[in-house]
Every structure is written in C-alpha cells, then in structure tokens.
Amino acid sequence: MTYRVRIENADGEVVTIEISADELREKGLTLEELLPPNARIVEVEEVEP
C-alpha cells in the first residue's frame, strides 16, 4: 500500500509526498515522525501501488 501525503510546512507551503507502507515499516517510523519541525499533515490518501 502507498500513501499520498499532503504536508504543510512552517512557511505555509503545501507539498505532496508518496511513501509506501513497506518503507515506513523498514524505517520503523510513523508518518508523523517523518515530518520536519513545525510541519503538519493536511491530508493522507491511500493509493494503489
């Protein structure tokens, strides 16, 4: 499974990243732990691999 994640950074700019569930598991991280300081998740969407 892959996630498309929209993130708002500290400057108010919204960027989109895609990350797979396998990648998260391998790194032992959650989506929140990948965020840079002062950023927030705006939207998470599951996409087909």
Rank of each mutant, 00 (worst) to 15 (best):
residue 2 T to F: 15
residue 2 T to E: 03
residue 27 K to Q: 08
residue 14 V to S: 08
residue 13 E to C: 07
residue 24 L to Q: 02
residue 45 E to N: 07
residue 19 I to T: 02
residue 10 A to H: 10
residue 49 P to C: 11
residue 20 S to P: 08
residue 28 G to W: 04
residue 4 R to E: 01
residue 38 N to S: 06
residue 21 A to W: 09
residue 35 L to T: 04
residue 19 I to D: 00
residue 22 D to K: 12
residue 26 E to F: 10
residue 22 D to Y: 10
residue 18 E to S: 08
residue 36 P to L: 04
residue 34 L to K: 03
residue 41 I to C: 04
residue 45 E to M: 14
residue 33 E to Y: 04
residue 44 V to P: 01
residue 25 R to H: 11
residue 17 I to T: 02
residue 40 R to D: 03
residue 5 V to Q: 00
residue 33 E to A: 08
residue 22 D to W: 13
residue 1 M to F: 12
residue 22 D to V: 10
residue 47 V to G: 04
residue 15 V to R: 09
residue 43 E to R: 06
residue 6 R to Y: 09
residue 35 L to N: 01
residue 37 P to W: 08
residue 36 P to A: 05
residue 1 M to Q: 07
residue 11 D to L: 09
residue 13 E to W: 09
residue 25 R to Y: 11
residue 46 E to F: 14
residue 21 A to Y: 10
residue 23 E to F: 13
residue 13 E to P: 02
residue 40 R to P: 02
residue 11 D to K: 10
residue 15 V to N: 08
residue 8 E to W: 07
residue 5 V to E: 00
residue 29 L to Q: 06
residue 31 L to P: 01
residue 34 L to S: 07
residue 13 E to D: 11
residue 27 K to L: 08
residue 24 L to W: 04
residue 4 R to I: 09
residue 8 E to Q: 12
residue 11 D to V: 09
residue 39 A to G: 09
residue 48 E to T: 14
residue 3 Y to I: 08
residue 11 D to E: 10
residue 41 I to P: 02
residue 47 V to D: 03
residue 2 T to Q: 08
residue 7 I to S: 01
residue 14 V to R: 09
residue 2 T to D: 05
residue 20 S to K: 10
residue 38 N to L: 06
residue 44 V to I: 15
residue 14 V to K: 08
residue 32 E to I: 10
residue 4 R to P: 00
residue 14 V to I: 14
residue 26 E to Q: 13
residue 46 E to S: 09
residue 28 G to T: 03
residue 22 D to L: 12
residue 23 E to C: 08
residue 39 A to S: 15
residue 26 E to L: 13
residue 26 E to K: 09
residue 42 V to I: 15
residue 26 E to P: 01
residue 49 P to R: 10
residue 40 R to G: 04
residue 40 R to I: 15
residue 9 N to Q: 14
residue 35 L to D: 00
residue 6 R to L: 11
residue 1 M to N: 07
residue 5 V to R: 00
residue 9 N to C: 09
residue 10 A to I: 12
residue 6 R to F: 10
residue 37 P to L: 08
residue 45 E to F: 12
residue 15 V to Q: 13
residue 49 P to W: 14
residue 2 T to S: 12
residue 2 T to K: 12
residue 16 T to H: 05
residue 18 E to R: 06
residue 24 L to N: 01
residue 23 E to N: 05
residue 46 E to M: 15
residue 35 L to R: 01
residue 9 N to T: 15
residue 49 P to I: 14
residue 37 P to Y: 08
residue 27 K to H: 07
residue 31 L to S: 00
residue 18 E to C: 06
residue 46 E to Q: 09
residue 49 P to D: 13
residue 48 E to K: 14
residue 31 L to E: 00
residue 1 M to D: 03
residue 11 D to W: 08
residue 32 E to D: 08
residue 7 I to R: 00
residue 26 E to R: 11
residue 6 R to E: 04
residue 43 E to P: 01
residue 17 I to W: 12
residue 5 V to I: 12
residue 1 M to P: 10
residue 49 P to H: 14
residue 7 I to W: 14
residue 8 E to K: 06
residue 39 A to D: 03
residue 16 T to Q: 08
residue 47 V to Y: 11
residue 17 I to C: 08
residue 9 N to G: 10
residue 19 I to Q: 01
residue 47 V to K: 04
residue 22 D to T: 13
residue 23 E to M: 12
residue 27 K to I: 06
residue 36 P to M: 04
residue 8 E to Y: 07
residue 24 L to A: 02
residue 18 E to D: 11
residue 15 V to P: 00
residue 39 A to F: 15
residue 2 T to W: 15
residue 15 V to E: 12
residue 31 L to M: 07
residue 7 I to F: 15
residue 41 I to M: 03
residue 5 V to M: 05
residue 47 V to C: 05
residue 15 V to D: 07
residue 23 E to L: 11
residue 35 L to K: 02
residue 20 S to H: 09
residue 3 Y to S: 00
residue 40 R to Y: 13
residue 26 E to I: 11
residue 28 G to K: 08
residue 48 E to Q: 14
residue 17 I to M: 10
residue 23 E to T: 11
residue 17 I to E: 01
residue 32 E to A: 11
residue 10 A to F: 12
residue 18 E to N: 10
residue 11 D to Q: 11
residue 8 E to D: 03
residue 13 E to A: 11
residue 49 P to A: 14
residue 19 I to P: 00
residue 7 I to D: 00
residue 1 M to L: 14
residue 35 L to V: 12
residue 18 E to M: 14
residue 45 E to C: 15
residue 27 K to N: 09
residue 38 N to M: 06
residue 1 M to R: 12
residue 3 Y to T: 01
residue 18 E to V: 15
residue 23 E to V: 08
residue 46 E to V: 15
residue 33 E to H: 05
residue 10 A to R: 08
residue 26 E to S: 10
residue 37 P to T: 07
residue 12 G to M: 04
residue 30 T to P: 08
residue 18 E to W: 15
residue 6 R to P: 00
residue 41 I to S: 02
residue 46 E to A: 09
residue 39 A to E: 04
residue 10 A to V: 12
residue 19 I to M: 02
residue 3 Y to E: 00
residue 35 L to G: 01
residue 25 R to D: 07
residue 5 V to Y: 03
residue 41 I to T: 02
residue 44 V to Y: 07
residue 39 A to I: 13
residue 44 V to H: 01
residue 43 E to T: 12
residue 27 K to G: 08
residue 6 R to C: 04
residue 14 V to N: 07
residue 5 V to T: 01
residue 24 L to M: 13
residue 25 R to G: 06
residue 3 Y to L: 11
residue 10 A to L: 12
residue 13 E to V: 13
residue 28 G to H: 09
residue 21 A to F: 10
residue 38 N to V: 02
residue 9 N to D: 08
residue 10 A to S: 12
residue 15 V to C: 12
residue 3 Y to D: 00
residue 29 L to F: 07
